[in-house]
Amino acid sequence: MKEFSRHIVHYLSLLGILVVAYVGFSVFNYDKYFQTALSIALGTAFVVWGFVHHHIHDDLHPKIVLEYIAVAVLGVTVLLSVIWDF
């Protein structure tokens, strides 16, 4: 929580991205192509958020970018697997 309060604007923007994506998934639950595009956009937005956040704090490192990409790939893979259930 200390991390959250220290960078409240950054985390609120991330929360905004996640909430919009979640609403998109629940509202457009019938549209698998939209959900697929949303999953990829979400993963990309997460990596970009990480990049910008660390760049602003002057601690951007290739290893950090790789970690964001890895977590994004995990999330997007899981989302696509439940979207395309056959």
Binding site: Y11, L14, Y22, S26, Y30, G50, K63, V71, G75, F86
Partner: peptide
């Protein structure tokens, strides 16, 4: 240490878990 933010990852994965929970079988 040089590392990404675990809190950001937690938020992201919590959202992914939320989507898994609301996902349902069936296609139209």
């Amino acid at each position: 240490r040089v590392s990404s933010k675990s809190f950001a990852h937690l938020l992201f994965l919590a959202m992914v878990m939320g989507v898994i929970v609301i996902s349902k079988a069936g296609n139209i």
